[in-house]
Structure formats: structure tokens, C-alpha cells
């Protein structure tokens, strides 16, 4: 995939990964939209969320979705900043802010998903 050895280790991994995550997100994102709006209840009631979250596959899908979307978004913003000549203190500040905000919100999302209880169903 890399034409020259030199091009490795200079952000080329994140370049490839941005495309890979992007392609995954296209599918998951449009699926998410259809599922959440298929009926007025499916995306906007606690019961519908609770019912879906009984499946661990669904939990894993949602956790992956949060992590990939957050990575893709923050890496995209970082890509915008890389278009400008930044001084090293600016690079460090922006990078740290992106990582801290990203980690905080990702963990918040993960916590929200994992907090949803498993309930015994009658059938």
C-alpha cells in the first residue's frame, strides 16, 4: 500500500485509517438513521433502547460506533489544523485538547451505554 518506505510513520497510518473508519461509518450511520426513525418510538423511547440493549451484539455495535465516530471526527479536525503552519506549542495545545475532550466524551458515551441494565423478560 505504501509506495515508499519513507512515507510510513509520517501520519500515513492515520490517513489510511481515516478512510477505513469513514467507509465503516457510512454504512453504520445510514443504518442508524433508518433504525432510529423507522417508527416514532424506535429511537425516542426508553423501552425501545432497553429492548435493543439486551443484545450484547447491539452494545458492541454501539460502542464501536461511538469510538470510531469520535476518532474519525477528531482526526478530521486535527487534519484541518495540519493545513496551517503551527508552532510546536500550538501543536501540543491543540493535540492535548482534542485528546482530552475526545476521551472525556467517548468515556461518557461508553458509560451511558454500559449503564443500561439487563432485565429479565417474561418469555
Amino acid at each position: 500500500m505504501y509506495k515508499h518506505r519513507n512515507s510510513q510513520g509520517s501520519g500515513s497510518f492515520s490517513w489510511v485509517f481515516q478512510r477505513v473508519t469513514g467507509l465503516i461509518l457510512v454504512v453504520v450511520m445510514i443504518g442508524h438513521y433508518i433504525l432510529m426513525h423507522y417508527t416514532p418510538e424506535s429511537g425516542h423511547t426508553y423501552d425501545a433502547v432497553l429492548a435493543r440493549m439486551q443484545s450484547n451484539w447491539y452494545r458492541v455495535l454501539d460502542l464501536t460506533f461511538v469510538v470510531l465516530a469520535m476518532y474519525h471526527g477528531l482526526n478530521g479536525v486535527w487534519g484541518i489544523f495540519r493545513d496551517y503552519k503551527l508552532k510546536s506549542w500550538q501543536t501540543i495545545t491543540i493535540m492535548s485538547l482534542l485528546i482530552i475532550i475526545g476521551l472525556a466524551f467517548t468515556l461518557w458515551g461508553i458509560k451511558t451505554i454500559l449503564d443500561i441494565p439487563y432485565v429479565q423478560t417474561s418469555n
Partner: peptide
């Protein structure tokens, strides 16, 4: 805009807990 929405989305779904 979508990244901004993702932040809002995580915030607005947090009452699930």
C-alpha cells in the same frame, strides 16, 4: 458540524443512565 452534533448527542443521551 457532525462532530459538534456527536458531542451534543452523547450529552443528550446521557439521561439514559
Amino acid at each position: 458540524a457532525l462532530l459538534g452534533y456527536l458531542f451534543m448527542h452523547i450529552y443528550s443521551l446521557s439521561p439514559l443512565s
